[in-house]
Nucleic acid binder design. Structure first.
Length: 731
DNA sequence: AGCACGCCGACT
DNA sequence: GTCGGCGTGCTC
């Protein structure tokens, strides 16, 4: 009798199990292949995980597979292994994890894009000096096409310009006779070769590249540790070039593509036609195309944000994680994975080197580099010969501040501007004022849905909750006693207004999430800043990201104190990183810049360390502290969160969870439940339980057993339980 | 999660 | 009488 075969299938449901199906004789799906299947009363999409001889449930319950969606697997075997681990490690349903690795269109069962259908290629089609009214976007498009000297796809154009051009926009330009479209010739166009690196490499850079390439095919992890301006990007690009030259694919992860348009442009220019970019700004179709181009090796270099980690890359040879300290690598909802940690795991599974780059590495990474588990590559010298900036504190108890600004800060700004250099003023709070309050009766404008004050946004005359987005019109007088209200605390918008009064004739810009919301606004702002001579830029941490500016003489930090005294696990570390990243903007090409920090606590150990200026030295005491308290990297944490519509039921459920966790705890401390630091967000109440252990295994045992229990005795539907393994913040 | 079944309240 | 509220149970 012919042997029947069965497959075990992953499905996009929050059920922590796989489902077995009978294979009709003509269907022999391989692991990683998408299939359509009957599920309950409907049809759904699944991914085959493995073949099995005997199903896990009685054969009477087994149903037959519907159909294959693709002729071949869409996910590779090593990627499936990574996804299995991910589900186990983060205690998340495997089906959701697996389907999450697919672009949304494929998750819903859409067909793969047909690689034989070429995209349009665009070229400039305009007489050189024909006088015409052309907008800045159109001009930039035409300039990019002329510079490329070859017709480009829309994707390639967007990579080069960062404009996010839509098809309709290009078609409008074509209708006006500015552009012409032609179908792509067979095969990829090979635009003009850009040659090797633009600047000669330093010996340190050459050594780093040689070390990385020397580990090809081995799961070696590198920490590429170098201050701003030390040329980490050149090391990435050159290592990538050599890996590509050997026929491998390269994955470069970056924290947020939207904030680093310069990097995409730089990579696209260096590797024309070879780069696929994957990030949240893409429309569904573009995302699918980029993903599939990377999967098929059509574009062997994939540049993307954290989710790009799950892209199948059959010939992957090298992974680079840029700015590894950036918390954006940790997904904060649903599947709480850390893309940097999983990148390292992927390196092990696929046996390839992983490069973690940062000027301010996390304590976790530094500790592993110090203990020798990672190879530590240092780029100490800046290729342009500049020295690091001097860091000084301004004691706000001595120097009073008005709208956030002290007199010495203003003096330093005047000096810097007089030298023809720029001032960057960093304040990590957007909006106008922190709160709206009444001096007479003490009323404060609070969010009706969260435990948070509403932030004043004067420009749009509204108050906004930064937690849930609730907004309401600004009121002039107190709703309780009718007295006029006062704006308390300073945000970037208020700082901008104050500075425009102090420096009425100086160019002034603001850079924060609100100012760059419109498409292309960030690119325009960065361009303006770069073109500006002396001037002032006010902004949030976006200012501290790795943009390159040539003329910054002063970086002023308005308020670090909330970072010094926050009780959160990583507050000190992250404050250090933020200040140093910001400081990295100061001083280029011979001119050391200056960093001025306003603080009420200049004697605080962190501030003393900052003045000394050496990140590695500052980290020592922080690591000691972590060791003594058993915190990461010397101990392991997991956070169990319960949230629900009412405070009492949520608390009861959290208490039951904690009881269950304690029942299974072996060498695991179970702390709580306690109301989460922001107890109420978006009309939901949140309780949390912290698990701590000196061993990973015991933590996972406790979580696993508890999870099994609640799968069997599920809590009411309106209560949600989520597990955050290796939480980045306890808030 | 989806989806259906099931058992109680105010409508044409 | 029946449309529809959301509690509960199941999915190979």
């Amino acid at each position: 009798m012919p042997q029947e075969t069965f497959v075990r299938v992953a499905i996009d449901r929050p059920l922590d199990r796989l489902f077995d199906y009978r294979c009709p004789p003509e269907l022999r799906p391989l692991p990683g292949q998408r299939v359509r299947l009957p599920f309950g009363r409907t049809d759904t999409v699944g991914v085959v995980m493995e073949s099995v001889e005997t199903p896990a449930v009685a054969s009477s319950r087994i149903r037959a597979l519907g159909a294959l969606i693709d002729p071949d697997p869409v996910l590779t075997a090593p990627l499936l292994e990574l996804l299995r681990f991910t589900a186990r490690y983060y205690h998340h349903p495997l089906g959701e994890v697996v389907l999450n690795a697919l672009p949304p269109a494929l998750r819903r069962g859409a067909p793969l894009p047909d690689p034989r259908v070429p995209e349009s290629l665009w070229r400039a089609d305009i007489d050189a000096d024909q006088p015409r009214r052309i907008g800045p976007r159109q001009q930039a498009t035409i300039d990019a096409l002329r510079e490329a000297r070859a017709p480009l796809t829309r994707d390639a154009l967007n990579d080069l310009t960062g404009l996010g051009l839509r098809r309709a926009e290009l078609e409008r330009m074509a209708a006006r006779g500015l552009l012409a479209a032609e179908p792509a010739a067979s095969g990829t166009p090979e635009p003009s070769e850009d040659g090797g690196p633009a600047v000669p490499l330093t010996p340190e850079q050459r050594d780093a590249i040689a070390e990385i390439i020397g580990q090809t095919g081995r799961p070696t992890v590198f920490l590429l540790d170098g201050v701003t301006g030390s040329g980490k990007t050149e090391v990435y690009l050159e290592a990538a070039a050599r890996s590509l030259a050997r026929g491998g694919q390269v994955l470069i992860l970056i924290p947020e593509i939207a904030l680093t348009p310069q990097l995409i442009q730089r990579v696209s220019r260096r590797f024309p036609g070879q780069v696929a970019a994957l990030h949240s700004g893409l429309a569904a179709g573009e995302r699918l195309r980029a993903w599939d181009d990377a999967r098929r090796g059509e574009r062997p270099l994939l540049l993307g944000t954290r989710s790009a980690l799950f892209t199948p890359l059959p010939r992957l040879g090298l992974i680079i994680v840029d700015e590894e300290h950036d918390p954006a690598y940790k997904q904060q909802d649903g599947l709480h994975y850390h893309a940097r940690d999983l990148a390292i795991l992927r390196g092990h599974i696929e046996s390839l080197p992983v490069v973690l780059g940062s000027a301010t590495p996390t304590l976790e990474t530094l500790e592993k580099a110090r203990s020798g588990r990672y190879r530590h590559l240092r780029l100490g010298t800046r290729p342009d010969g500049s020295r690091p900036p001097a860091v000084n504190c301004l004691d706000t108890r001595v120097h009073a501040t008005d709208e956030g600004l002290s007199a010495p800060m203003l003096d330093a700004m005047r000096r810097t501007l007089a030298q023809g250099r720029q001032c960057f003023i960093l304040l990590n709070r957007r909006g106008f004022a922190r709160v709206l309050t009444c001096d007479h009766c003490g009323w404060v404008a609070d969010c009706p849905r969260c435990d948070a004050h509403l932030t004043v946004h004067a420009s749009i005359r509204r108050s906004i909750c930064h937690l849930c987005g609730f907004t309401q019109p600004l009121t002039e007088s107190c709703p309780q006693c009718g007295q006029p209200l006062r704006h308390l605390g300073v945000g970037t918008q208020r700082l901008e207004r104050a500075l425009s009064r102090h420096f009425p004739d100086t160019p002034l810009m603001r850079l924060d999430r609100d100012s760059i919301r419109r498409r292309g606004a960030l690119e325009r702002s960065l361009e303006t800043i770069r073109a500006m001579d002396a001037g002032i830029v006010v902004g949030t941490q976006i200012l501290a990201k790795g943009h390159d500016f040539p003329r910054v003489g002063l970086v002023g930090i308005i308020d670090v104190d909330q970072g010094l005294f926050s009780s959160d696990l990583r507050a000190a570390e992250q404050t250090l990183q933020l200040v140093l990243q910001a400081a990295g903007r100061a001083g280029r090409a011979g001119d050391p810049g200056e960093v001025l920090i306003q603080t009420g606590h200049p004697e605080h150990p962190l501030m003393r360390a900052l003045r000394a200026g050496d990140y590695a030295a500052m980290v020592g005491p922080l690591l000691d502290e972590r060791r003594h308290s058993g915190m990461p990297p010397y101990g392991y944490l997991a956070l169990v969160r319960v949230d629900g519509p009412g405070p009492e039921a949520t608390q009861r459920q959290a208490e039951e969870m904690a009881r269950e966790l304690r029942r299974h705890a072996r060498e695991v401390r179970v702390l709580g439940p306690a109301p989460a630091p922001r107890h109420r967000v978006n009309r939901r109440y949140r309780e949390q339980i912290l698990l701590a252990s000196s061993r990973r295994a015991t933590l996972h045992h406790t979580l696993g057993e508890t999870r099994r229990h609640w799968e069997e005795h599920p809590p009411p539907r309106n209560l949600r339980i989520s597990i955050d393994v290796d939480p980045i913040t306890l808030a």
